[in-house]
Amino acid sequence: MQLIIVTILMLYFGLGILATQYLNRRPDRPYAKERWVKLLYYFLILAIVFSAIHFHQARPLAIVIAILGLYELIRAHMQSPRPNTQFCLFVLVYLFIVFSFIRFSSQASIESLFYLYFIVVTFDGFSQICGQLFGKRKLALRISPNKTVEGLIGGLTIALLSSLLLFQPMQVPFLQNLLVTGFVCLSALFGDLLASWYKRHYQLKDYSNLIPGHGGILDRFDSFIFSGAMYLFIFP
């Protein structure tokens, strides 16, 4: 299954390159370099995460992500006059989520980890691509201005079709396949919106510049963290 997932992702990454080339022909050419940098680092992140899962290092990676995410939350608070009590509540919620995420990374099988990250990456990637190509109606303007209804539909459709393509030969029940994949996608979306809301709450554009072209560790891994935590609760 791992080889199939990697092969599918390479095909999707090729589509991402084509989409980036097309988008860079539009009038907003100043963003062309930024799109290529973001795509390059996105590929490196994929390679690191899937390598960590393959070599049974998902738990250490999850701990590193959690620590860097906490650093970004603290950094955001230090740049704002928001009350400390409010920040403490946010941190408690965050620690509860990442603790569950670390447990998931420790207890889940390699197949489950590959599946979850594959679905999250597919949903997230195609939501961005479809949103940039076809997006017109805003999904959550005040929280995440770049998200669109068209992007959500596109990402969810590709993720569901990819899941069917991957698991149908393994005789996973059709309805179960759709429900689990849909749950993972919606969890990923909610985690993304939650992280975006926190940024807007502190009036930040990015959490940090730890990943060039991306909005920080939390901006890149928020979907994975939250969907992993939710997966643990539903499928312990």
Rank of each mutant, 00 (worst) to 15 (best):
A195G: 06
D192P: 06
V180F: 13
A108Q: 03
T157E: 02
M10Q: 10
I225W: 03
Y42R: 11
P30N: 04
L44N: 03
S196W: 04
Q176M: 10
G155Q: 09
F190S: 13
N177R: 06
S223E: 03
A62I: 01
F87H: 03
I48E: 05
P145C: 02
L44D: 01
L218G: 05
I119S: 06
M230D: 05
Y207P: 07
F43D: 00
S109G: 14
I67L: 12
P145H: 01
K138H: 04
F126I: 09
F134L: 12
L9A: 09
L70Y: 11
L68A: 10
P173S: 03
L15K: 05
L46Q: 09
R220H: 02
A108R: 02
L166F: 05
I225L: 03
R137S: 11
V64I: 15
T181D: 02
N84K: 11
I8V: 15
F55A: 07
G154F: 05
G16T: 03
P145N: 03
F126Y: 13
R26F: 05
I5G: 00
Q132H: 14
F183P: 04
I8D: 02
I119E: 08
F13P: 09
L194Q: 03
D219V: 00
S163H: 08
S80V: 04
M10H: 10
F123I: 03
N146S: 13
L139V: 09
M78I: 08
I129S: 08
L178A: 06
T85Q: 12
Y115C: 05
K199D: 00
L95W: 01
F167L: 14
R220E: 03
I158V: 15
L73Q: 04
G182N: 08
Q57E: 05
R200M: 10
S109H: 04
F126Q: 11
M1C: 04
